[in-house]
Design a protein around this nucleic acid. Sequence first.
DNA 1: CTTTAATGTAATTATGTTGGTTACACGATA
DNA 2: TATCGTGTAACCAACATAATTACATTAAAG
Lengths: 149, 149
Amino acid sequence: MATSTRFAVAIHILTHISLRHGQAVRSEDIAHSVNTNPAVVRRILGALAAAGLTQAQLGQGGGALLAKPVAQITLLDIYRAVEEPPTFALHRVPPNPDCYIGRNIIPVLESEFGRLSAALDDALAATTMADIVGRVEANAGTPYRADGV
Amino acid sequence: MATSTRFAVAIHILTHISLRHGQAVRSEDIAHSVNTNPAVVRRILGALAAAGLTQAQLGQGGGALLAKPVAQITLLDIYRAVEEPPTFALHRVPPNPDCYIGRNIIPVLESEFGRLSAALDDALAATTMADIVGRVEANAGTPYRADGV
DNA sequence: CTTTAATGTAATTATGTTGGTTACACGATA
DNA sequence: TATCGTGTAACCAACATAATTACATTAAAG
């Protein structure tokens, strides 16, 4: 199981917006930081906005803003916003119902995969964007400057 | 997220072999239960064998056998055998090193994704094939019969 | 020793997902 | 009203997955 890069990019995007402290950030500026296309950033921002994590300021001087305080945005919120469930996939084609194992293993897998997903959710919920932003600044050693360099 | 079905199929395969109690099982019989092609089963069995979980009995009357007791095969062993790391992907293209965030977020993501992977590993290691086989039999209500129906 | 049954593995193909790109309609601000 | 920026659709290249076919190899049975 490999997640898409959307989760990592979404965290990057939210970190970028967070460090601007309420100033709207253009998708083009974020794209420059992420090293990708503005439309890719807007697509992910669309998912984050649908989940109530960000909001868009249209028009001149507009851009993306946080819709919630950084301490109230968990990695679980972000993960659910940008990654398609399920995390653990069952058989592409259902197993043979005429076989003892094929007939009985699906509920066992569903239950076990549910337990694994719940464990992952717990781990994801334990970190907020406030933690991430704090670690990025700690890693940099210097505070973020308005020019972003 | 396009998760592979290999993990679910590998558990199915090992359950099948376990229920035969030491009798070699042909890839064709397993494929019939999983509802797929014998070559697909053999490919997954190859990964499981490389991880030391199964072994092949070549020639007439041959097939797949467990290489360890069921209680000593954890879901973590299986997951690592058939899924490619990493579970959580970073940016496809590295972020812009000329940007404060692009320059400092990667170590933060690596550390956080490491923590998430470790949490998932803990959850995976908590279940063994003995648990899975027991639940399949409990779900069936009747013990497994030699004809597999 | 020969036949037969089974695995191991490579090559090919179909399908789906991801992310990059372009394009353009829509909304908001100056 | 002109301009700026978002939202979103359409398209494409790259990649992953799994189904399929084919065949060399190995071991048991006669």
